[in-house]
Simulated assay, not measured.
Amino acid sequence: MLFSSSGSTGVPRVFRYTHFDRKFWEQANARALYSGGLRKGDSAFPMVGFGPHVFAWGVQYTLATMGLPVIPGGGMDGKARASIIERFDPTVLVCTPSYALYLGRVMQEKGQDPARTSVRWITTGGEPFSGVEGTLERIQDLWGAKSLEFYGCTEASPHCGGYSCPEYQAGDEPFIHLMEDIQVWETVDPVTMQPVPENERGLTVCTNLNSESSPQLRFLVGDYTRLSAEPCACGRNHLRAMGCMTGRADDLVNLRGIKFFPVQIEEAVRAVPGTGDEFQIRLSTMDDGLDVMTVAVEHTDPTVAAAIAKEVRSRCEIRCEVEVLPPNTLPKTEMKAKRVRDMRGKA
């Protein structure tokens, strides 16, 4: 089987995996979904494009291994998928966090209440969200369901390396467990690339132990997190990534010497009540050569611009312009969100 990375940080990288590898995916992924709460009696609705991206296929194979009914959801628009949920009552959705928000709004426009549907679990991958303040709560409130983190990367072994347990939202910050029996996880300093102590923030590095065709030794996954070996209240002793994963190093924005992640802008937008689900970060260069940032949001009240700009500055220590647009103006995210438009230095 041939798969590629998402290409969100550059040209997609292609990897191959054998059917021997796939058996290990199924075992690891089934453990992750079971840990999250899925059981016999659940039925799943994967709403993903079944292209060369491993997340969808890994979940599909695993649901079959677990013996759970599956409703294939590729090749449909939001209204069709909303009708499937209304008609067949799946208990599990499989999608990106952005698509969970999008589909919920589609259902509301149709007069349906997502929180009153059969959906009890939302299994998400492809984007950071559990560690993004405001986004996790927004998804769960919209659907009246629990979100499950499904974390991994194509390169270092395609199965789920990070997974949710019943306690992952119980403390001051969410976390995910990392499967230490099949992957060795480390965090390193982003500058020196040397290992950092436990509970110190760093970039993730992974060595996989179970891939026949794509063995990786200390592969730089590049997500920021803090690792903790402290025992979990759920009883599992796998290492925990505290705060989950909050953005890859390649996503880092450098504006006039100030460095920040798009998730920090997302947290600022979510902090202001009434903002829409979509937003854009626009980077451009003025005639005098100054690089500037505009954050475009949706809201019924144009005066919230000042509040959003204040939230951005408190998190990123940078001033920005805020453009407030009417609701349903920005393009809806139906797959993996790409919210940064960098036009700096372009005519």
Rank of each mutant, 00 (worst) to 15 (best):
A306N: 14
M293V: 06
D301C: 07
F260H: 05
V269D: 05
G274I: 03
R282E: 14
S284K: 05
M293L: 14
T275D: 10
K259A: 01
M293N: 13
A306H: 13
D277A: 10
V269L: 06
P273Y: 00
F261R: 05
F261P: 07
V272F: 10
V272R: 08
V263M: 08
I258A: 15
S284Y: 08
G257N: 05
T303I: 04
V269M: 04
A305I: 14
D250S: 06
F260P: 08
I265R: 12
E298T: 05
E266P: 02
T294Q: 15
A249P: 11
A305Y: 15
I265D: 08
E278H: 09
P273E: 05
P302E: 07
E278D: 13
T303E: 14
A268W: 08
A306K: 13
S284D: 09
I258N: 15
R270V: 01
R270L: 12
D251K: 03
F279N: 08
P262I: 09
L290P: 06
F279E: 08
H299V: 12
G274F: 03
P302R: 09
L283T: 01
T275K: 06
E267C: 06
I258F: 15
R270S: 09
N254I: 13
L255I: 01
G289K: 00
D277K: 12
D250G: 10
V304P: 12
A305N: 15
A307D: 07
V304Y: 08
T300G: 15
N254R: 06
T275N: 11
T285K: 00
A271M: 11
P262S: 03
E298D: 14
G274T: 05
V253S: 00
G276I: 04
V269N: 00
R270Q: 04
T294C: 14
P262W: 03
G274Y: 02
G274E: 00
A296L: 07
L290H: 06
G276K: 03
A307N: 09
V295D: 01
L255M: 07
M286T: 14
R282D: 14
V253H: 12
A296K: 12
L255W: 01
T300N: 15
I265T: 07
G257L: 09
A307T: 08
T275I: 11
V253A: 02
T303M: 13
D288M: 13
D250Y: 02
E278G: 00
V297L: 06
P302K: 11
L290M: 02
A305K: 14
V297P: 02
V297T: 04
K259S: 08
E267S: 04
G257V: 04
Q264K: 03
R256Q: 13
V292C: 06
V297C: 01
T300P: 15
I281F: 11
E267L: 09
R270C: 04
G289V: 01
Q264E: 15
D301N: 11
R282P: 12
V272W: 01
K259G: 08
D277Q: 13
D250T: 04
I258T: 14
I258H: 15
P262A: 03
